[in-house]
């Protein structure tokens, strides 16, 4: 009984020590990342909203908001400063497009060069649905014995091995 109590106590003491060690190691690293969350939370939130709309050109499948690349950090700072100066979201997106092109926008504008991008999926879907409808209608018109596995179908003579 006494022995078990000692064992439990040492185990919990070890756990506390572990937790303490973890705290010691975790706190400084989060302290390094913290200053990005700037003085003004309202500007910060708007900055992140704009940054989510922008592609990071260094790591192209991330947004400026997600990326840790140096350029993304610089652009976040730029957005923050422009918002602080009273620029609108639209003006900031225009500013970025002027420098980096439509490619930075995760939602590019609709224009002749991007038309296929926008209507392409709908177009492909329309083609697929038309094809499906055509095939189904054709099969509907076929007589029942075509689907009978026992009767050789009409085209069998040019496909079958001789």
């Amino acid at each position: 009984m006494h022995e078990r109590l000692v064992r439990t106590l040492t185990r919990s003491a070890r756990a506390v020590a572990m937790a303490f060690l973890m705290l010691v190691f975790i706190v400084p690293s989060s302290a390094v990342e913290a200053p990005a969350a700037a003085e003004n939370p309202e500007i910060e939130a708007r900055m992140m909203a704009v940054a989510t709309e922008l592609r990071c050109l260094v790591c192209q499948n991330q947004t400026i908001a997600d990326s840790h690349a140096g350029l993304a950090e610089d652009l976040r700072r730029q957005i923050r400063e422009m918002l602080a100066k009273g620029k609108s979201e639209r003006e900031i997106l225009d500013y970025m497009t002027e420098r980096y092109g439509d490619f930075v926008l995760y939602r590019p504008p609709f224009k002749p060069a991007t038309a296929l991008l926008w209507i392409g999926p709908a177009l492909l879907m329309a083609v697929a649905l038309t094809a499906l409808a055509t095939v189904l209608r054709r099969r509907q018109r076929m007589s029942a014995e075509v689907f009978d596995p026992d009767t050789p179908d009409e085209e069998a003579d040019d496909d079958a091995p001789r």
């Binding site: 610089d74 730029q78 420098r99």
Partner: peptide, 13 residues
């Protein structure tokens, strides 16, 4: 030093 001219010139690589 802080890459501001770089941003103006659209530098990314």
């Amino acid at each position: 030093p802080d890459g501001r001219i770089g941003i103006d010139y659209g530098v990314y690589g």
